[in-house]
C-alpha cells in the first residue's frame, strides 16, 4: 500500500501524459483522416493515389517501428524531435490512416439517392457534402471511429520506448525501484481499462444522440 501512496503523484503525471498523447493524436489523426478520406474519393488521380499509398504504408507497418523511425531515425536526416512530439506525430499518422478508412466507409455508406436528391434541387457538390452527406456519414462512422479512439489510447503505451514518461513507463520505473512489477502493471492496466470504459460509454451516448432522428 505504501508503494501506491508514494508513487501516486508519478502515476497521476503518467496518466496526464497518456491522456495528452491519446487525445491530441486522435484530434490530429481525425483531421488528417478526414482530408485523406476526401482525397481518396476525389476526382484527381494523384490525390487518390497518394492517399492510397499513405494508408497502405501506415496500416501495413508496426506502430512501434513508425515511432522509432521518427524518434531515432529522423535525426540522421537532420530532423530532431522531442520524445512527446515524436510520439504524437507517429500516433497521429498511424491513427489517420485507419480513421481515413472509417470516414470513407461513412461517406460511401450514405445512400446514393441522397446525392441525387441534393443534385435535383440544384445544390452544388461541396454544399451537398457539407449539409447532406457529412452529417449522415458521421453517424455511420461513429462506432468504428470510437473503436479507433480506444485502440489509440492503448497504443500510446508504445511511446514509452522513446522515453515518454506516460503510464507504462511510470509503471516500469515503479517496478524497477521496488520489484513490485505485478502491482504496478495491474494498477496501470486498471487505469487504461477505466479510461476506455468511459470512452465507450461516451461513444454509446453519442451514437444514441446521433441516431435520435433516425429511430
Amino acid at each position: 500500500m505504501d508503494m501506491l501512496v508514494d508513487s501516486f503523484p508519478m502515476l497521476l503525471r503518467g496518466l496526464g501524459i497518456t491522456l495528452l498523447l491519446g487525445v491530441v493524436s486522435f484530434v490530429l489523426g481525425s483531421a488528417l483522416g478526414a482530408l485523406v478520406a476526401l482525397a481518396r474519393i476525389s476526382a484527381f488521380r494523384v490525390l487518390r493515389g497518394s492517399a492510397i499509398m499513405y494508408v497502405s504504408i501506415f496500416r501495413g507497418t508496426p506502430l512501434l517501428i513508425q515511432i522509432m523511425i521518427i524518434y531515432f531515425g529522423l535525426p540522421q536526416l537532420g530532423v530532431q524531435l522531442e520524445p512527446i512530439p515524436s510520439a504524437i506525430l507517429a500516433l497521429s499518422l498511424f491513427a489517420g490512416a485507419y480513421l481515413s478508412e472509417n470516414f470513407r466507409g461513412g461517406i460511401l455508406g450514405v445512400d446514393k439517392g441522397q446525392w441525387e436528391a441534393a443534385s435535383s434541387i440544384g445544390m452544388p457538390y461541396w454544399r451537398t457534402f457539407r449539409r447532406i452527406i457529412f452529417p449522415q456519414a458521421i453517424r455511420i462512422a461513429t462506432p468504428a471511429v470510437g473503436g479507433r479512439f480506444i485502440a489509440l489510447m492503448k497504443d500510446t503505451s508504445l511511446a514509452s520506448v522513446v522515453t515518454v514518461v506516460e503510464l507504462t513507463r511510470v509503471a516500469e520505473s515503479i517496478g524497477n525501484a521496488n520489484f513490485r512489477y505485478m502491482e504496478a502493471f495491474l494498477m496501470i492496466g486498471a487505469m487504461y481499462w477505466l479510461i476506455n470504459t468511459l470512452l465507450s460509454v461516451g461513444q454509446g451516448m453519442l451514437e444514441r444522440r446521433l441516431g435520435k432522428a433516425y429511430a
Binding site: 445512400d111 439517392g113 441522397q114 441525387e116 436528391a117 441534393a118 443534385s119 435535383s120 434541387i121 440544384g122 445544390m123 452544388p124 447532406i132 452529417p135 449522415q136 453517424r139 432522428a213 433516425y214
Partner: peptide, 24 residues
C-alpha cells in the same frame, strides 16, 4: 456544372424511394 445546377433548380424531382434527408 453551373448550367446544370441552374437547370436543376428549374426542375423538381420526386423519386420512387423518396430520398428525403433523414437528419432533417
Amino acid at each position: 456544372a453551373r448550367l446544370m445546377q441552374r437547370a436543376r433548380q428549374q426542375t423538381g424531382m420526386v423519386f420512387q424511394q423518396f430520398n428525403l434527408f433523414p437528419h432533417m
